[in-house]
Structure formats: structure tokens, C-alpha cells
Design a protein around this nucleic acid. Structure first.
Lengths: 149, 149
DNA sequence: TCTGAAACCATCACCTG
DNA sequence: CAGGTGATGGTTTCAGA
């Protein structure tokens, strides 16, 4: 799908605040809200917009600890290993990467004890992984809502 | 702030789809939309909800490559180094971590050439960093919209 | 891409237990 | 004091141009 400047303007607004009324988007890009409605529908259908999510503060809902976990996967066990990772509560993202690690996870845990349990009882107990490294996120200095548009 | 089951139900719905009308949330949790309106306002004020963002597909807006970058920061240069990282276009997140790296970035680039430029012209050219490692994200197997609630 | 109209929704002041 | 009611003005949505 080809995006024009109008599409990009709409995407920027919805990336910044997904609850912006179409009528306000219309005012800002100087078009009718019917057009905005139309274009947003098309962006959703084309998979350019994949959803709208409230940004919920992890600490405030009881997840005091977050970490990045690097994993090495044994040859041939990839699919099996990944499907079991997906089932673990607290695993937020599973990225397949080049470099030192085959898989990088982003995980949430209540506290460091819960993180230890998550790593030992779940990840380390799985076979298919030969090595892991946990990097606790001490803080997040900056984070945007997605790619620049 | 103390969250009760009603708050958590609202958070789950808005995390899943931030554009859900309050009237529909009200139906689903069996309360009036005035109450939903009220509670959402309180969750926003308390910083439990920090915004609502459209999930925009990076590839579809021209960012074909994404990577995780580990950095070592020289002692005493932390604040200076971080503030310059924040200015680089394509840097989506800056996490301070324990372990092998002091800082982990999530970056977006148009293609591998653009990623090389980003790393060489921007990151490596900065002083304050002594070592770096780039892990290209080949794919994302799973990703949730935030912490479990 | 727009206009226009009907259905729908957010929001607020004011009640109620 | 959390929750509800009801009025009103704004918003979404869709057909038709």
C-alpha cells in the first residue's frame, strides 16, 4: 500500500493519541471526518494500523521488574522452544535476533524473586536452550510509541 | 493508588483496544458509562494509563530493519551520552540495564545501509561509548501490548 | 472526497444509597 | 463517596452525490 502525506499525518496523530476523535483529526488535516473515517479504515485493512492500545504503567499494576533475556537455542528445537516461551506469563516479547543470542525476550515480573522463579522454573527448566543471560532494566530513559512517521 | 477488579477489567479492555467506547466498556463490566468515564479519568490522573497509541507497522511505513543495540558507557559520561542518543532519529527506546551492557537501544532503520549509517555516523561517532553490539531483529515471534493485568 | 442525517457517544450537573 | 440518571452537544458512520 502506498501512503501519502495525508495518511502519514493521520498515523502520526493516532500514534500520539489513539483516542483522538476523527472529527478533531479532520480539523487538523483540513478534511471531512468522513474522509478520515474512510482512510483509517483503509489503513487498518492494509495492516498499517494493527490496533490501538492503552499504555499501562507496569509498576502501577504490580510488575516492579522488567528485563531483557538473551537465549541460545539448540539446533532443531526452535519451533518447540518458542511455542513454550509464548505460554509463560510475563513474557511480553520474543524477538529472533542475529549476534550473540538467538532469541531476546522482554519479560515482566512482580519483583526480583518472581524474576528468578520465571527464569529458573520456566526458562532454564526447558530443554532446547543452552545458555541465557538476564539484563535487568534499571530504568527506561526514553521510549517512543513506535517508528517515526 | 489501589486498583480493584473493576479498574483492572477496564485496563484490560483499553490495553486490548484503546478505542473501545466507554459505553461498550460499561456494558461489558455492567456499570454505567458515567462510572467508566470517572474511573478512566482517575486511572489517567494516577499515571496508571499513560496514553493511547496506534500500533503502526514499522515495515509498512518504510522501516524495514529493527535492531537491539548494546552499549558500554564510559564512567562519568552517562548523562551526556544519553541525551545525545535521544536526539537520533530511529532510536525508539533507551533502556539502562545490568549485565554485559549499560544501555540497550531499540532502533528502527529503513534498511541495513541506513542501520550502518545510524551506527557509524551517529552512535560510534559519539564519544562516551567504549563498545557496542548490534543484534538485528530477524522477526518477532510474539508481542503483547504491555504487562499482564 | 464531501454533504447530510440518524444513531450513537462523551460528558456533566445533579441525584441516591 | 462510589455509582447512577438524564439532558445536551459532539461524534461516528453510511448512503448518496
Amino acid at each position: 500500500m502506498e501512503l501519502d502525506d495525508t495518511d502519514r499525518a493521520i498515523l502520526r496523530i493516532l500514534q500520539e493519541n489513539a483516542r483522538t476523535p476523527f472529527s478533531e483529526i479532520a480539523r487538523r488535516i483540513e478534511m471531512s471526518s468522513a474522509t478520515v473515517h474512510d482512510r483509517v479504515g483503509r489503513l487498518e485493512d492494509a495492516g498499517v494500523i494493527n490496533g490501538y492500545h492503552a499504555d499501562v504503567d507496569a509498576k502501577k499494576v504490580g510488575y516492579g521488574v522488567s528485563a531483557l533475556v538473551g537465549l541460545r537455542v539448540e539446533q532443531g528445537r526452535e519451533e518447540d522452544a518458542l511455542s513454550r516461551l509464548r505460554e509463560i506469563d510475563g513474557v511480553q516479547a520474543i524477538h529472533l535476533t542475529t549476534g550473540e543470542w538467538d532469541v531476546m525476550l522482554r519479560v515482566y515480573a512482580k519483583d526480583t524473586d518472581a524474576l528468578r522463579d520465571l527464569m529458573f522454573d520456566n526458562v532454564a527448566a526447558m530443554d532446547g536452550f543452552s545458555r541465557s543471560q538476564t539484563m535487568i532494566i534499571l530504568g527506561t530513559d526514553y521510549e517512543s510509541a513506535g517508528p517515526p512517521i
